[in-house]
């Protein structure tokens, strides 16, 4: 058993020639909550897809439980994925199923649990995210925040070894935000899960993470415990943690000169 359940080694990846990641190194120790932070479009979701083996790196590798992901056969990748639960950024609930059936889905697919047991488990998971009362609703009848909480319940349905959360706090009211924070931490500590959180929310993330990676310009720009990072004097970290507009992180997607663009068609 390796000490780090997920290891990212010198990883590079790009869509259509535009390099997104250039030599990323990260480790995710067992039983810890590790956060990945970075600006919008910095490639966080893509990084999660690389961990899940949905896309292949251009260079370098991701290892899950000691096994290189991108060289696995289809069967091997499915074996690795059964250790993971993933909360998608937009929920990705099955719209033709009810809330109950969405959470029951992984159980029906991967276990032979009797119906009564599935029922108890589903209601427990829904209770944990505060939506037990909504179990008979259709997935299409939920608000954005509710959908993400159901998706969270589905992600943890089979108590995976690794839970990957893509923006777990986006679109939640402060109360649910607190509850979800506690839930992630509790799950992690009670079940020995490893949690990978992608988020922009500095305050919430710092309150539950054991370790934080900042990605910018395709590399890990800073890393450390939340305590270290809050004190960090690195201009990049300072800008992000304090939400300042001016600093080394560009707000804009790489573009040509603004004035030129506006005056473009006269020229």
């Amino acid at each position: 058993m390796t000490q780090n359940i997920v290891e990212i080694d010198n990883l590079s990846f790009g869509y259509k020639g535009r390099m997104l990641h250039q030599g990323i190194n990260m480790v995710f120790p067992r039983g810890k909550v590790v956060a990945i932070m970075g600006g919008s479009g910095s490639g966080k979701t893509t990084l999660l897809r690389l961990i899940g083996g949905q896309i292949k790196p251009t260079k370098g590798e991701v290892r899950v439980d000691g096994q290189v992901v991108h060289t696995q056969t289809r069967e091997g990748i499915y074996q690795l994925r059964r250790k993971m639960g993933m909360l998608f950024q937009h929920g990705a609930l099955f719209t033709d199923l009810s809330v109950y059936e969405n959470v029951a889905f992984p159980m029906r697919e991967h276990t032979d649990f009797p119906e009564s047991m599935i029922r108890d488990l589903v209601l427990m998971k829904l209770h944990a995210v505060g939506l037990r009362g909504a179990h008979q609703l259709k997935a299409t009848e939920l608000s954005g925040g509710m959908a993400r909480r159901v998706a969270l319940a589905r992600a943890i349905a089979l108590d995976p070894d690794i839970v990957i959360y893509d923006e777990p706090f986006a679109g939640l009211d402060p109360i649910s935000m607190g509850v979800i924070c506690d839930l992630i931490r509790t799950l992690n500590d009670a079940l020995g899960t490893t949690s990978i959180i992608v988020s922009h929310d500095v305050k919430e993330t710092f309150s539950i993470a054991d370790y934080v990676y900042f990605v910018a310009n395709g590399t890990v720009a800073a890393e450390g415990t939340p305590a270290d990072l809050s004190k960090s004097t690195l201009p990049f970290v300072h800008q992000f943690v304090h939400g300042e507009k001016d600093g080394p992180v560009p707000f804009h997607y790489a573009a040509g000169d603004y004035k030129q663009d506006l005056l473009g068609y006269e020229a």
Partner: peptide, 18 residues
């Protein structure tokens, strides 16, 4: 098409369901 656009097929893949 909509299941694909809303990442439902991706989510299924990630749950190790083909």
């Amino acid at each position: 098409g909509l299941m694909k656009a809303t990442e439902q097929l991706s989510a299924m893949e990630m749950m190790a369901v083909s």
